[in-house]
Design a binder for these strands. Structure first.
Lengths: 158, 158
DNA sequence: GGGAAATGTTGCGTATACATTACAAATAAC
DNA sequence: GTTATTTGTAATGTATACGCAACATTTCCC
């Protein structure tokens, strides 16, 4: 049980260390590590709404919007209007954005390799499974909270 | 090898989800999840320099200072002068800060438990080991970079 | 179809992460 | 001992993370 006490800080240090290492690489190419995450999301499936990006990038609407505004200013993405939904926007990579993403995806390969240095194939798979389960556990907490808060608000409104 | 490609985003989503869940809890008690990390560092060993906290909290000097200024403003920590080193400061928990930390440590226990829900004792240990190795791998990248940059700067200076 | 609820986005405010620069004190080099 | 280097902190600026409220549009329900 003492183990559980140290876990959050270890997850924190692992993530922040990875982020620093990534950022050090991407910054030399003009973007941030977080912006690269967005480009990668758009590289997988283009022409999605900002809301989709919120899910894919595990972020929130305000942050996604701010990042997209910056990326649009650099000519890497375009935020068009959704044809069927007047509220939504459709985000696409520009050709410049796609070229940058594909180049950075290649040049960042060594980072991903070194990050998992010493991990066997099996260990990597176990780790990925663990991280998925952790994400689900954590998301269950916040969505339950939101759900109950929503239920409360609805209840109060009646 | 395709596994490695998905890993960074999974680590990102796991950390951010944990951070959101934690923050939702601590915010209701007046502090942020990150501030709690600092209190926890001070709870383990009091009267340390800001530089020590940089190491323990896996952060950087600017961030630590900004957080400490806020915590000091709320009367949770005191930043005194180091007796032997005129540059350094010695940070301590106030009694108010210690009481808050101990209370929040107890009330946040369910979060840590739920986060690891479904993980066996053995799995938790494996996970902790993995996170430690990841942190080392990532830190090795940035410190090597800094070391080489330093070597370069020194070289250029001569 | 008209009002209520839900949804996608935007704007604003605060806290973090971090680079960079500046500054003062301590340490090393000679 | 004086200079050069290192080191702890401070100050500034940009980018993120996120809560919250405002807004417009869409969907739901009757």
């Amino acid at each position: 049980m003492d183990r559980a006490g140290k876990f959050p800080r270890l997850l924190r240090s692992a993530y922040l260390a990875m982020h620093r290492a990534s950022d050090a690489h991407f910054t030399r190419h003009g973007i941030t590590a977080d912006q690269f995450v967005l480009l990668a999301c758009l590289g997988e499936q283009d022409a999605v709404t900002q809301q989709d990006l919120v899910q894919r990038a595990a972020s929130d609407p305000s942050t996604i919007r701010a990042m997209l505004v910056l990326l649009e200013g650099r000519g890497l993405v375009i935020r068009g209007r959704h044809p069927d939904d007047g509220r939504a926007r459709v985000v696409r990579l520009t050709s410049k954005g796609r070229r940058l993403f594909e180049r950075l995806w290649r040049t960042s390969e060594p980072i991903r390799v070194r990050l998992l240095a010493g991990f066997s194939e099996q260990e990597s798979n176990v780790l990925l499974g663990f991280l998925g389960r952790l994400t689900e556990n954590a998301n269950a907490m916040v969505s339950r909270r939101r759900a109950s808060r929503h239920a409360l608000a609805t209840q109060e409104a009646t």
